[in-house]
Design a protein around this nucleic acid. Sequence first.
DNA 1: TGTTTGACGGACA
DNA 2: CTGTCCGCCAAAC
Length: 103
Amino acid sequence: MKNPTKTEATEEKIWPWIHAIPRGKVATYGQIAALAGQPRHARLVGRIMGRLPQGTKLPWHRVINAQGRLSSPNKQLQQSLLEVEGVTFIGGRVNLKNYQWRP
DNA sequence: TGTTTGACGGACA
DNA sequence: CTGTCCGCCAAAC
């Protein structure tokens, strides 16, 4: 057994928060990092997201960047998943003023 | 061991 | 609006 890496320790903290994002709302990478007690670690969140398995139950599509744009490899899928939930895209971006989740 | 990379963010020109 | 730069830091090379 090895000590958990910093990434693994952070995973445990961010997953509950991502899971808590309600339908029709979005959160930013930096926001999740801050909620998990890791301010300024947005990239760490992004790296963890990239390691998620396909069948994950986490609403990964509700996490976007601070500019209201999509950063995931599969932007097309992510956008359609969000639109189904009622998130509107204008000019390829989301209006965070209206759709950002505020715990 | 040193450098580059990346599902980021914010400041600035 | 776009593009550049810097801070951040684990993982990959």
